[in-house]
């Protein structure tokens, strides 16, 4: 009985961590589907979002919800500007140039955050910190539960946005066929910047949800590397796929940390990623395509 409870505990912890990976992966996928760029700085944008929330809530004393919302909006605006100012210029350059560009941006963000907020870990009080919820005898931390619930709500919002609103549908169209969308009068460039904004906003949500579980520090962006595993499992083109991928990675990581010797937990996500790329590079949910000549 105790084993089962522990297992369940591990699964919930893993799912919570996995939701974070999934949210970062979701940012990758949104941008990739639309622009064929991969944002290696996604994790660092999450870090910026977390620090912003810290400033607004802990420093300026804003209410948690107001501060979080404001942090998300500011980060989203930052994402929009990032695309409009920097990334638009490299359209047409080889994909790995974009990889290097975003990696470079990540370094700059980290340094910027270091200058602004310092290199120590920080945290702020949230309504979920150090509280538990009792589910039929199973005691779970509210922080973990809040991550899972927050992710589910966010997904619902995104789903409604993409399927019901004009802008959302335009985004889907632009992602599938830029040229056709352009001819239909969709302002493709602005749409792409908006997608960057959404993806940055999602990253900020991830950073804020994560803050009760782990502290915010300059290097938290390295979580982004684990999120790659999530995105790859999802086939790098599927939004639900990346979330499921994230949860899989999170749970496997927790289990590996508990059942395998020390040191394995850190590499689990990488091993899963490599195995996935070698055995099923198209992901669990995508179909294989071939180039036409």
């Amino acid at each position: 009985m105790e084993d089962a409870a522990r297992l369940l505990q591990l699964v919930v912890n893993g799912a919570a961590a996995g939701c974070i990976y999934g949210l970062i992966a979701l940012g990758f996928v949104l941008i990739y589907k639309a622009t064929e760029m991969v944002n290696f700085a996604q994790g660092d944008i999450m870090m910026l979002g977390g620090f912003l929330a810290f400033s607004l809530i802990a420093h300026w004393g804003l209410n948690y919800w107001v501060g979080a919302l404001l942090a998300i909006v500011i980060t989203a605006a930052f994402g929009y500007a990032l695309d409009a100012v920097v990334l638009r210029r490299v359209i047409g350059q080889p994909q790995f140039a974009v990889v290097m560009l975003t990696l470079g941006l990540g370094f700059i963000f980290r340094a910027g955050a270091g200058i602004t907020w310092g290199y120590d870990s920080v945290g702020f009080a949230t309504p979920f910190t150090n509280k538990t919820v009792n589910l039929g005898g199973l005691v779970l931390g509210q922080d973990n539960v809040s991550i899972i619930v927050g992710t589910v709500i966010l997904c619902g919002v995104l789903f409604t946005f993409f399927s019901k609103t004009r802008v959302g549908v335009a985004m889907q169209a632009a992602s599938q066929n830029q040229l056709a969308a352009y001819y239909m009068g969709i302002p493709v460039r602005n749409i792409f910047s908006l997608i960057w904004a959404i993806s940055a906003g999602v990253a900020a949500v991830a950073g804020i949800l994560l803050s009760p579980v782990s502290m915010i520090d300059v290097n938290m962006g390295f979580l982004g590397i684990k999120a790659f595993a999530a995105a790859v499992i999802g086939g790098f083109g599927s939004i639900p796929g990346s979330l499921i991928g994230g949860v899989i990675v999170g749970i496997v990581e927790q289990l590996a940390g508990y059942y395998l010797p020390a040191g394995f937990q850190e590499v689990t996500s990488n091993v899963v990623l490599l195995a996935m790329l070698i055995l099923r590079p198209q992901g669990l949910f995508a179909e294989r395509m071939g180039k036409r000549v």
Binding site: F107, I108, R110, A111, G114, V218
Partner: peptide
């Protein structure tokens, strides 16, 4: 973090 950020900036 001066060095890595400078590398990042130069790369960009």
């Amino acid at each position: 973090g001066l060095e890595p950020s400078l590398f990042g900036l130069i790369l960009v």
